[in-house]
Design a protein around this nucleic acid. Structure first.
Lengths: 225, 225
DNA sequence: CAGGGCAAGTGTCTCCATGACACGAACTGT
DNA sequence: ACAGTTCGTGTCATGGAGACACTTGCCCTG
């Protein structure tokens, strides 16, 4: 291919990624936030994110920001771009366009300590977040909508759980994302009918009758939109 | 708000929009393409698009490019962003990120003559396009997928038609987008059950029995994803 | 070790949406 | 008036979704 200069009318903008990363803790859907250490919006909570490096893919950039800003070392179970926010006034530093990503972290991803330019990181209830910097409240709202759509559609709920899990646990993931209760029998019927789950051993849950453990069937992956 | 400089690590990239604009002509789904007049890819067909101006919203930029590159003066009936393409090597001129948009143009938008830096513009069968510049074949493929999803979901088919239309015409829009035939009786049943269509006068279509004309019901708009 | 507490697990019925399927009705042009 | 062409219509079978209550199995306490 030819090597050519950018034409003069090519507006140069700052290119950023922001990541709405979700996980289940304590039966609730939580979102990962960082406390900003720099202006603008210093000390405010925000979605982890930052500028894309030269030569770096958008996907890679989202992964890197997730890792460096939150000390999350695990690979996210799911990561996809879902919307690009580019309104002229959205960042006081100038024209910055942010490609927003949705991430799902496996169960057990609890310890987050912050890093990079942040003062810290933490989990917050996804449906009732604190005040957020920039337009991150709008980004989070749209991420939740996307998560809900993906639920039925791409079996995303399984990504929130460890390799082996019980049906009531899986049901709680669905309920947390949809933010409404589901009927136990109908839920089991529907999920088992899809043939994605295979039973294994058994386990006790402290109180009550022990629940059957399941594992995801081998040949089970879903298509992207 | 504060006014601050961009931090040094903020990669500057060229910000572009590309538009996959669809319309129905001759019972087929068509996509609007322009013939490039400049390097790279001079004389190749491409989706209309170009660089976002400073201070311009992404949505506005998509509208402007559609108008100036194709002499389409009509407001599109639908315009939404659907994916952002930002792989480092996608444009030989440097790092250029393109926010791809999906547009639906009303029936009757036929005369396109090109403009701006193009050699011309024209309609092409959306499911069998010619070879395209850059990664525009991938953009078009994803646009078609999105169009299919939006069909059931946001009543997008109506936007392809004039204010008043017949049910067979509407069915042809669905068939063109889904690229498969539909059963006439089931289609009518389903669409009329939604209560979005109201009948009006009648009209003859040259040959065959005249078809009932419909208009969209007043209080009918759908939500975005 | 008996009984209470607690969560897991299970089946039926109804309702609605979808898809398969064939013929008569209304108009045009020759 | 006849042929050609397109519009318009109903039934049945099937499958998925949602409402709904009781029994099972384990733990803990007395």
């Amino acid at each position: 291919m030819e090597t050519l200069a950018l034409p003069p009318q090519a507006t140069q903008v700052g290119l950023a990624v922001d990541v709405a990363a979700f996980a289940m803790h304590g039966g609730e859907l939580q979102v990962l936030l960082v406390q900003r250490g720099e202006l603008p919006h210093a000390r405010d909570w925000a979605l982890p994110g930052g500028f894309v490096h030269p030569g770096e893919d958008l996907h890679e950039a989202a992964l890197r920001e997730l890792r460096t800003e939150t000390s999350v070392t695990l690979e996210p179970r799911h990561l996809e771009q879902f919307y690009t926010f580019g309104a002229p006034g959205r960042d006081p530093r100038g024209r910055i366009v942010s490609v927003a990503h949705l991430a799902v972290l496996a169960h057990g991803t609890v310890d987050v300590t912050g890093g990079g330019h942040t003062l810290g990181a933490g989990w917050f209830p996804a449906h009732r977040p604190p005040a957020l910097a920039f337009d991150h409240a709008a980004i989070l709202a749209r991420a939740l909508g996307r998560l809900r759509v993906r639920l039925d559609y791409a079996h995303l709920a399984l990504e929130f759980l460890p390799d082996t899990f019980t049906l009531p646990e899986l049901q709680r993931v669905h309920e947390a994302i949809l933010d409404r209760p589901l009927d136990k029998r109908n839920f089991r019927k529907r999920l088992l009918a899809q043939g994605l789950l295979v039973p294994s051993g058994e386990r006790r849950s402290g109180v009550g009758r022990p629940a059957q453990l399941y594992r995801r069937a081998k040949g089970a992956k879903a298509a992207a939109l």
